[in-house]
Design a protein around this nucleic acid. Structure first.
Length: 221
DNA sequence: GGCCAGGACACCA
DNA sequence: TGGTGTCATGGC
């Protein structure tokens, strides 16, 4: 089963995902940084903390020192690190786009990715998440779920570089931001609802392919 | 009480 | 270029 067929199977099972979970484009950017190596439930708490104080906008957040931001996002973990990264992103947004995520979203996709990667604390996955989910750019997001699930299915080894896996997906799939958006959302849903916290392989829409391939149970989380 | 989560970076050899 | 340590909370 190849990539498009897998997507169609997931889509039939889960329906349209309508992602990313965020109430504004700015919130998507903040969430993309806060979710680094962190469960989304913890990110939601931090976003809620910012929202409750009316701080989920560039104008409100930009004047705050990183130390203050850190206290507000504690629940997302590694909060001192993430506060510095958020501050770096805010400086970037102010310097390059006068604080406007709308202006940022108008940037050409390749150029936007390149510029985001120059920001401290924004790596490939975070840059691509912002480019796709905040700016609607046709770039495929490769995350830990993607790596884990597709290596189990035998389509990648899982040890490839980020860019190599991304090229694989973008080579095989039509260049379509809506497709990349929903595909990644389907992967996350499969990982969360079926593969974790305890594998429910009998309910897997992908015909339990990884188990049939002899993937050991220890890898099925 | 230990393991893990939708990474990125610094440092070292 | 690749390996390892660090950051840190909250759920299970």
């Amino acid at each position: 089963m190849r990539l498009l067929a897998i997507y169609r199977t997931l889509r039939r099972r889960f329906g349209a995902a309508d992602w990313w979970p965020g109430e504004s484009v700015f919130e998507v950017c903040v969430g993309a940084i806060l979710t680094q190596n962190t469960a989304w439930t913890n990110v939601e708490r931090a976003l809620g903390s910012l929202r409750a104080r009316g701080l989920l906008s560039y104008a409100a957040l930009r004047p705050l020192p990183a130390s203050r931001i850190g206290l507000l996002i504690r629940s997302s973990g590694t909060y001192n690190v993430k506060a510095r990264r958020l501050a770096a992103f805010l400086r970037f947004l102010g310097r390059e786009y006068r604080g406007s995520v709308t202006a940022m979203a108008r940037e050409r996709p390749e150029r936007l990715r390149e510029r985001l990667l120059s920001v401290h604390g924004i790596g490939r996955e975070t840059a691509d998440s912002i480019a796709l989910y905040a700016a609607g750019a046709p770039v495929f997001v490769v995350d830990a779920y993607t790596r884990r699930i597709f290596s189990r299915l035998g389509l990648i080894s899982g040890r490839e570089e980020y860019d190599e896996i991304q090229r694989f997906f973008m080579w095989e799939l039509p260049r379509d931001a809506a497709l990349y958006n929903d595909y990644h959302a389907q992967i996350v849903r499969l990982a969360k609802d079926v593969c974790r916290p305890r594998p429910r392989c009998a309910e897997c829409p992908l015909e339990n392919l990884c188990e049939k391939r002899g993937v050991p149970p220890s890898r099925l989380r």
